[in-house]
Design a protein around this nucleic acid. Structure first.
Length: 455
RNA sequence: UGGGGUAUCGUCCAACGGCAGGACUCUGGUUUUUGGUACCAGCUACCUAGGUUCGAAUCCUAGUACCCCAG
């Protein structure tokens, strides 16, 4: 079916076109490529969840040559005889359960399925930067890194190796070829409630050219209905939540354990942590360097108001103070807190108290009332602009500093080769350093970066 | 040590002599591919001992503790 015929089908079925997708080849209209429907071989990234299952289904129905691919991201290999490997159980992304679910869906669809062991890559590109960010007082978003370095970079590499044309994922987002600029664009999903473009701001032209987002025009309910209609075992899996490699939610405990594992003596000492952090900085591939740290991590840390030495005290109790320095209580270690946090401070006041900032040097937690948390803007580093060009002078945009936040009016200006400065139209609750700042122009994702500081 | 004042959830405050309420904290839940936020729900208290009264957090007496003035 050529694009003209495809458009005709859409027109002819009119308002009832959606149900047709249950029975006919139907994928997002925005997945046409240069006016053509996607043709050729596609690697469908399958997490074992409902979205990626339906993603594979839609590709197959569109007539693509599909093969499923699942990344094994974590899980221990049992020390069995003969090196027999057994993935650990667990309903978390990239676990054995998910690999099995993805494989079952592929069997159901009659398509090949590959499982890639990317645990080392996951550790290096996601887990280590996650721990190091928290240890230096920032609040990382590991899902962003996982998307960037695993779901896109690593899978694209496998795609090239296998000689396939596309990688498709179950993200709720859309891409579009822009004739005017001659470039690919990333757009928000049709289902605003499920839009996931926020975690994709780092996509490049090269990657977008080889990406498909078959779910971009569907709603979650439609996706689940499709999965049920096809009897997928993944149809009623719950939405993913929490950090996949910290299923119990105790990220501080996880990081402490991570530090211990890295230190043979088993002690979380200042010296061992410093060794770990500095070693990590040296050994990490360039793309997994501490965000925005550049060539000289220590200088960069100092510039950011962080001291490497103090990072070792991330677990040490200290004082809770207000903006005037009055001591209000004791904190349990700065690693347990993040800017904007309300719960867990443990100090009773006239109104709720929120974390305003973390003073790593003095090991003090600065708290205040809600209105004190508001900021005029935010500076983002480690910038990616999907269009490729520099942004230049102030530009009216909309900005998200959290996955679920509705975009807010702002102006953005390129204030450095790798720096954006966002000024909100109305003061916003401050974003924690380390969080993603994503810039939109209507439905279009312009790009984004990592929050360095609010002002 | 003299004079005055105050004692109520973990914290800060309410409650004509008539079922002790709220805010904050805390706990649980909902929402959510990050941390958080937001929303909903829940737990916990009348300083001690007497007295007055049908009935006391409330009034009276004593004790205890703390605070403020005088030292």
């Amino acid at each position: 079916m050529g694009p003209a015929a495809f458009a005709e089908v859409l027109t002819s079925v009119g308002r009832h076109w959606r149900p047709l997708c249950y029975h006919a080849p139907m994928i997002s209209r925005d997945d046409r490529i240069g006016g053509e429907l996607p043709a050729g071989s596609v690697m469908a990234a399958m997490s074992g969840g409902v979205d990626s299952s339906v993603c594979a289904l839609l590709l197959q129905r569109a007539g693509c040559d599909v093969r499923g691919a699942t990344m094994v991201l974590h899980g221990d290999v049992a020390a069995g005889a003969g090196g027999a490997a057994a993935w650990s159980e667990g309903a978390v992304c990239g676990s054995s359960r998910d690999v099995e679910d993805a494989r079952a869906v592929c069997r159901h669809l009659g398509i090949p399925h590959d499982a890639f062991d990317l645990r080392d890559r996951f550790d290096a590109a996601v887990v280590r930067p996650f721990c190091e960010a928290y240890l230096t007082g920032r609040t990382p978003n590991p899902c962003i890194d996982c998307n960037r370095y695993l779901k896109f970079e690593a899978l694209q590499q496998r795609r090239r190796e296998l000689g396939l044309r596309y990688v498709a994922t179950g993200h709720y987002a859309r891409r579009r070829w822009d004739e005017v600029s001659g470039r690919w664009q990333l757009l928000r999903a049709a289902d605003v409630a499920k839009d996931q473009s926020y975690v994709l701001y780092h996509l490049t032209q090269d990657t977008l050219a080889h990406m498909l987002f078959p779910l971009g025009d569907l709603t979650k309910n439609e996706v689940r209905a499709l999965a049920r209609d096809h009897g997928f075992t993944t149809a009623d899996k719950p939405e993913s939540q929490d950090i996949c490699f910290v299923p119990d939610g105790d990220y501080a405990g996880f990081i402490e354990g991570w530090c211990r594992v890295r230190d043979c003596e088993g002690a979380v000492s200042r010296a061992s942590l410093m060794r770990g952090i500095e070693g990590g900085l040296k050994a990490a591939p360039t793309e997994t360097r501490l965000a925005g740290m550049g060539e000289n991590p220590k200088a960069a840390l100092a510039e950011a108001g962080l001291a490497i030495a103090s990072a070792a005290d991330a677990f040490a109790p200290g004082e809770i103070v207000d903006h005037a320095g009055r001591v209000l209580g004791q904190h349990a270690g700065l690693i347990h807190y993040t800017v904007g946090q309300r719960k867990g401070i443990g100090v009773a006041a006239r109104e709720p108290l929120y974390v305003l900032g973390k003073d790593n040097t003095a090991n003090r937690l600065v708290v205040g009332f809600r209105d004190e948390l508001e900021s005029r803007g935010v500076v983002a580093r480690d910038v990616n602009l999907i269009g490729g060009d520099a942004l230049g002078g102030p530009r009216r945009v909309r900005v998200k500093t959290h996955y679920r936040q509705r975009p807010v009016d702002a102006t953005v200006e390129q204030t450095g080769p790798d720096e954006l400065t966002v000024v909100f139209a109305e003061p916003q609750r401050a974003a924690a350093p380390g969080q993603a700042v994503v810039v939109y122009d209507g439905e279009l994702v312009i790009g984004g970066g990592t929050a360095a500081r609010s002002f």
